[in-house]
Structures are given as C-alpha cells and as structure tokens.
C-alpha cells in the first residue's frame, strides 16, 4: 500500500495516534520526574478514567459530563492513592514503589472486571463530532480529528501549568533538584500530592477521550502501558516536552511502518527505542544523570 495518498494519510494518522500517546505518557513522566515514582498502575488509571466516564455517560447521556467525570474521578483516585499509599513509599527503595503500583494496577483491573464484567463498553462520541470528515486525501473519523485538538488543548494546559505557574516552577525545580526544593521550605508532600493528582488526571482524561475511539475493557490499559514506557524512554524520562515528542514519534513509527509491513509496526517501535538508548541513553529531550 505504498502510494502517495496513503503515505500522507499515514503521516496524519500517526499524528493523531501520537497525540494520544503523548497525553498518556505526559502524566507518567511528570509523576516520575517529580516524585521519582514510576507508576505501573498508570495503564489501569487510563482504563479507570474510561470506565468512570462511561458510568457518567450512562447516567446523563452527555459526553462532556463523561469527560469531566472521568477526569475528576481520577484526580480523586490519584490524590487518595498518593495520600494513603504512595506517600509511605517515598522513603523506600524504588523497587518497592514499582511493586506496590504494580499490585495496585492488578487490583484496579480486577475490581473493574468484578463490577462491569469483561463485556466491552462503548461511549459514543458527541453528536456533533460523530461521522466522518473528508480531508481530500482521506476520510477520517470526525471524532479522531477533534481528539487531536482536544489533546493539543490538554497538553497546552499542562504546559501552562508546568511552565507558567508557581506550582509548575516548583515542580520543575523539583525534577531538577529535589533537595533544593525541600530546603526552600516548600511543603514537598503537598506538591507531590498535587502532581500525582495531575498525573492521574491526565491518565483519566486520556482514558475517557480515548473511549469513543476504542471500546472499553478492563484490560485496555495494559497494552497502552508498555507503549507509554517506550514513549517515555524515547523522549527522556521526566521530561514533559520529551513525552510529547516521544508520543508523536511513536505514533508516526507505528503508522508509517504499517504501510510497508503491518506486522512489524511494533517491532520498529521497540527498535527505535533501542536506537535511542544506544545513541542518546538519556532520551531525546532528557537530561543526563537522571536515573
């Protein structure tokens, strides 16, 4: 399927796919960057956001309410998780944090299965955004087009929060040098809680925004989690711009490779990650020395 039209189509599709990956990965990366905790429950949170939105949609029939509900619910989940569990792990080895979030991920997935069964759930896009748009070179689902815009706005909002507010300055300073922030007398725990909440919120938001694209099952987060790892490693762990760049690169690799040989789309993705590790181990936009 190597034609000019298809190439342009795939480039565009890669952008759409990448935008979503960028959004999910950005939550993972800022949590890691600030708290030093790699949240292995991030995929489960993505899934949870979708289900929370689904419940809200079933109750109200409004997609906007669903998005808000999915996002807020994950904010609550994130804050609660940080306060009740993660907080007690800051003083413990990284591995313990990985283990506990890994376990929490399993618990979330199986809880959802218990309540919603394994039958997939669908959240339809809002009326306004349903249907297909002709873009000249290809027909593209209107909602997916809109999702690119929605994700772009969300990423911009995160950018503003991280780069244009006091909170953001503290967070970024914390990513650079946690000891310094601590010594400034800033209540790091509160910052951590907020950051974890924001990261969880980003996952939840991505989950519900993705729900009209891909129907929900309890296992929807697992495949995403591994991809976000790749995105974060390519972009640079802890780097917000890195997550965005990594997401876009990953989206393009999957899409463009599928044009030549669809069976190898994911192998190419992992291949790209290996290449980055060989040539620039800290990731494309990562800073050296952060582990």
């Amino acid at each position: 399927m190597i034609t000019w039209t298809n190439f342009v189509s795939q480039l565009f599709n890669g952008l759409a796919l990448g935008a979503l990956l960028a959004l999910i990965s950005s939550g993972l990366t800022i949590i890691y960057g600030t708290l030093g905790v790699l949240n292995l429950a991030h995929g489960a949170m993505f899934m949870l956001g979708g289900y929370a939105g689904y419940v809200a949609y079933e109750a109200t029939g409004s997609f906007v309410v669903a998005v808000i509900a999915g996002t807020l619910f994950l904010l609550v989940v994130g804050v609660a998780m940080e306060r009740l569990i993660i907080r007690h792990f800051y003083g413990r080895p990284h591995e313990d944090q990985l283990l506990v979030t890994f376990g929490l991920g399993i618990v979330m997935v199986e809880l959802v299965r218990l309540f919603f069964s394994s039958l997939s759930k669908t959240v339809p896009p809002p009326q306004l955004l349903s249907g297909i748009t002709s873009m000249g070179f290809l027909f593209y689902p209107t909602y997916r087009l809109a999702a690119v815009g929605i994700v772009a706005v969300a990423l911009l909002a995160m950018y503003i929060v991280l780069y244009r507010t006091r909170l953001g300055m503290i967070v970024r300073a914390g990513i650079e040098d946690p000891v310094m922030v601590d010594s400034l007398g800033i209540n790091v725990y509160r910052i951590f809680m907020i950051v974890f909440g924001i990261g969880a919120m980003a996952a939840g938001f991505a989950g519900i925004v993705n729900a009209p694209v891909a129907s929900l099952t309890p296992d929807v987060g697992e495949a995403i989690l591994v991809q976000t790892f790749v995105v974060v490693v390519i972009g640079g762990v802890g780097s917000f711009p890195g997550a965005v760049l990594g997401g876009l690169i990953a989206g393009e690799i999957i899409s463009v490779t599928s044009m030549f040989n669809p069976g190898y789309a994911y192998v190419m993705l992992f291949g790209a990650m290996t290449l980055v590790l060989m040539l620039r181990p800290q990731g494309l936009l990562g800073t050296k020395g952060r582990e």
């Binding site: 890691y32 030093g36 790699l38 990284h94 990985l98 591994v226 790892f229 790749v230 974060v232 490693v233 762990v237 069976g263 994911y266 192998v267 992992f270 291949g271 990650m273 290996t274 590790l277 060989m278 181990p281 582990e291």
Partner: peptide, 27 residues
C-alpha cells in the same frame, strides 16, 4: 543495551525488550 541505564529506566527498558522477544517468538 539495557544496562546503559539503571534504576527505573532499566526496568522500563527490560519491559520493552521482553515485549520484542514475545513478538519475535510468536511471529
């Protein structure tokens, strides 16, 4: 390849590498 990084980075890389192996075995 994997030991070029340590800590959490290392953990993430090993996840990705294992996925590649699964794919290669499968296909």
């Amino acid at each position: 390849v994997a030991l070029r990084r340590t800590g959490i980075y290392f953990a993430m890389i090993t996840v990705a590498i294992a996925e590649v192996f699964y794919f290669v075995e499968f296909n």
